[in-house]
Amino acid sequence: MRSQLEKAKLFRALHERPGAFIIPNPYDAGTAKLLAAMGFEALATTSLGLANMLGRTSVSLEMILQNARDIVAATELPVSIDLENCGADSPKLAAEAIRLAAETGAVGGSIEDNTAGPERSLYDFTLAVERVQAAVEAARSLPFPFTLTARAENFLHGRNDVEDTIKRLQAFEAAGADVLYAPGLYDLATIKTVVSALNKPFNLVMRFADPTLTVEQLSAAGVKRISVGGALSRVAIAAFLKCAREMKETGSFTFVREMATIKELRGAFAAASG
């Protein structure tokens, strides 16, 4: 069994080696084991995938942390947690989520610069930076190298402002964040513009980016980490709905031809469990 310290060092090493790596987003223990069995080197949770799994439009920090515990326990891989806004507006309370994330066994986590309220507005620039600073302090107080990812959410909230996104990411970098993240970037030119303005590793989420882009292209553009957010969950739900519609609308069951075999599933689960 790898210790949390060993996982943390392994996770850091992935960010330091040449080229980009994929960090897929399982939404439960089963999908985590499948991804581990396929040879991925690290995992990141997805709050959207968790909400979909639970049939909710949003999830609490407590739900996020419990989901992370399940995923951490499922494999030997390093796990980073999608902590959304860390469950609080104030820097001090948001930083507490970092300590709680570490207690799940995870070795990384993210903090967003948007609120969790119905309006989902961005935090004022100064407050956003203060929140990252507090999260960094909490991460540095841990007995292992917790990888903190700071997210600038402009593009997810209709503010397609590259300059402000870079300004926020640079401030988060200066505050000590280990990885920078700006979900919503689509084209390679914009991605290059943002990444070239930063010195720390950049995470690109393919849920919003041009799906024709490849790991090779993104690596050449300077992207270090590639995630997919809630995409795997949404694709799985799309397949579920397609099968359900076939039963309901045509009374047929041809979808059973596409099932994963029991042998394949049991083999993957056994491999991931060691």
Rank of each mutant, 00 (worst) to 15 (best):
R120I: 11
L122F: 08
A128N: 01
V129L: 12
E130H: 07
V132M: 12
A134W: 03
A134I: 04
A138Y: 00
A139R: 03
R140A: 08
F144Y: 12
F144D: 14
F144C: 10
P145K: 05
F146G: 00
T147K: 11
L148M: 02
T149K: 07
T149V: 14
A152W: 04
A152Y: 07
A152V: 00
E153V: 08
E153F: 06
E153G: 03
E153T: 10
F155P: 03
F155D: 04
L156G: 02
G158L: 14
G158Y: 14
R159W: 07
N160T: 12
N160Q: 14
D161K: 13
V162M: 14
V162K: 14
D164E: 02
I166K: 02
I166G: 13
K167E: 06
Q170V: 07
Q170F: 03
A171R: 01
F172Q: 00
E173H: 12
E173C: 11
G176K: 04
A177V: 03
D178I: 02
D178Q: 01
V179C: 00
Y181Q: 05
P183N: 09
L185T: 13
L185A: 10
L185W: 10
L185S: 10
D187C: 02
D187P: 11
L188P: 07
T190P: 11
V194N: 07
V195P: 05
S196E: 15
P201L: 01
P201W: 01
P201F: 00
N203P: 04
L204E: 04
L204D: 06
R207W: 06
F208Q: 09
A209H: 00
D210G: 10
T212Q: 09
L213R: 12
L213A: 14
T214F: 01
E216P: 14
Q217F: 09
Q217L: 09
L218M: 05
A220H: 10
A220L: 05
A221M: 01
A221P: 08
A221G: 13
V223N: 05
S227D: 12
G229A: 12
S233T: 05
V235T: 11
I237D: 09
I237G: 08
A238K: 04
A239Q: 15
F240L: 13
L241W: 06
K242E: 09
